[in-house]
Write a protein that binds this DNA or RNA. Sequence first.
DNA 1: TTGAGTGCCGCCCTCTGCTGGTCTACC
DNA 2: AGGTAGACCAGCAGAGGGCGGCACTCAA
Length: 683
Amino acid sequence: MRHEADSNGLSGLRVQATLLGGGVIMAGAELSVPPEQFTQIKEPELIPDRALQEEEEEETDNDGVCGVKEQSGSAGLEVESAQGPLQTTILEEVPELVLAAPEESERHILTLRTVHFPSEEAELQDLSWLDPQQEDEMQVTVSQAGGGVQSLVWLEEAAQQSLHQCVLNVQEEVYSLQEMEVMQFQLLEENVTRAGEDCKSAMNLEESTGSVKLQKGQEEEQLLAEGGFSEKAEEQFFLVEARPGDEGRDEIVLTFSNLNMEEQKEKPQPGQAHLEKPSTTKNQKKAKEVKRTFHCSFCKFTSSRVSSLNRHVKIHSTEKPHVCHLCLKAFRTVTLLRNHVNTHTGTRPHKCADCDMAFVTSGELVRHRRYKHTHEKPFKCSVCKYASVEASKLKRHIRSHTGERPFQCSLCSYASKDTYKLKRHMRTHSGEKPYECHICHARFTQSGTMKMHVLQKHSENVPKYQCPHCATIIARKSDLRVHLRNLHTYETAEMKCRYCPAVFHDRYTLIQHQKTHKNEKRFKCEYCSYACKQERHMTVHIRTHTGEKPFVCLTCNKCFRQQQLLNVHFKKYHDTNFVPTVYECPKCGKGFSRWSNMHRHSEKCNSGQEKPTTVEKERAMKRKPASPREPAKEDATAEEVSLMNGELYPGEMVPVDFLEAKTEGEDLEEDLTCDMILALMDK
DNA sequence: TTGAGTGCCGCCCTCTGCTGGTCTACC
DNA sequence: AGGTAGACCAGCAGAGGGCGGCACTCAA
């Protein structure tokens, strides 16, 4: 409902309501404020063919009436109630109303008269259906001061309600009329001297209902003190409340009950405001303070005041007359346009006194100062200690408590708590990798990942993280956390050493303990003093005591304690393709079947010669032997075989580099028994 | 009407932490 | 040779900071 009005606010209103029905009951309510607050208005002319209106007219003071007549067209305002489309139309072509030019100290008088509409579909602008003789037609007439505009507002209401509310905001030209029974509102003039007469009525009402509540303190008390209802009015009106709003805006809130109207629920129409239906019982005769909430039909906006709603509804309008000449973007106000143009020009008039930052709006500066300088955080979480500069941040934070995830991925079940995370998540579906390493051009989905990549791969002095419980140094803090979790976390269940009965409760201590077993000869022979580090060695050794020889040559039926001895035997005596290795003395060229023999010889041949390098040994090994050897004793132990073949001295250590060359990285920390060496040399 | 102040939404960023694949040493 | 476990690394999500922009309120 919009109505062009004078900017002069009305600080004083007198509401006079007349309910017409069988056995006409007239109610008049006069609400006034001290005279100095009044904006004087002129007395409107009443609709001429209504006798009862004339009666009201007789009760109305006419002083100060200027008698300016206006004709106005329909403003087409529709007011929606929660229960149904209560259409209120400001007709600009209603000659019955007369509004005077606004003058100081003028007062408003609303004369309310019930008129029932014939149907909801009635054309509001068409008054032909309105039979003045029909008592139950509804017509609400409001004439107001300010701009000399006269207004006829009526309600179309077919349903029956038990509670009725009418909100008239005179200055804002918003008349939200809800659940009115057939009534006619007419704004009449009132003067100060009249107020005292109505005071008694007002008191009567208050006494009869006991629930006329004032919301705005002393000023409203004064309103009630100076205005009031007739004694008859209290039978029909239970709350007539005038609320001088902020900034001089006036609202008149009329709440009616005992009118036996049914609820009517229809969907709101665009542009219609609606009110929450107060919860009251039917036929209630006591006035109640009704909490009024105005809802925008286009969005979730609500306001306690029609004026706010009316201003808000404008944002849904496409009317944006202020166009940016640079980008053609349109704005509703000049201020918005100016701020916008500043974003083009880089003009930032609001400079921070504590740093070099500057902003387009003052609000941005204030927020910046809170973030960077004052650290004021007015928005505090009630659950935890979190506080934020902005309310939206607190709202976002609250979701971490509630688990609310309003932003659902359309491609999977993921839902995010804010829009950015959803957007970032969508890269996992699109494969987009917007961040590129400027050195190796590797691409990443998140900037943080790319940053870590550059730090770890392309930076010097990369920070390392020292484990507080061991000597481990880890490149990433998160991996250190994994390290701590895996190795240094206390485990309730005992972890047993695999070599001894010791038990531990964290993996690191267990591993460290087990390493202590590594170099000890923990396998001890039960028949002699022999000990070794590996179980397989002990197995072979035990056969020297038991005489077991499980490996049999299929050609000559010779038996051996070890597979390797059998292999050596077979190659030497049954494999015609076998070519034994010959080691030649680098000085004299004499050949030997074992390197150790050649080495012993070479020491005699050249006492100052060092042991050959690995390359020299490999070169020597590639030479062909002159002839097959004598067979060794088949039943000898490995040590015995070696000794008999003259390969090893008792207790001689084999050069590690030689074995490394032969074994290609096998674990050389193991005990090297003769059979192992033979096996290695057979490879 | 204007400007300060406020509220809200959106965008982008950083920091943080978890997860799973890969590499490597060790057994 | 194969299994295991720890370090390394990229992917990904949670949480929050900071700012841009605009609508709205309110007082001058």
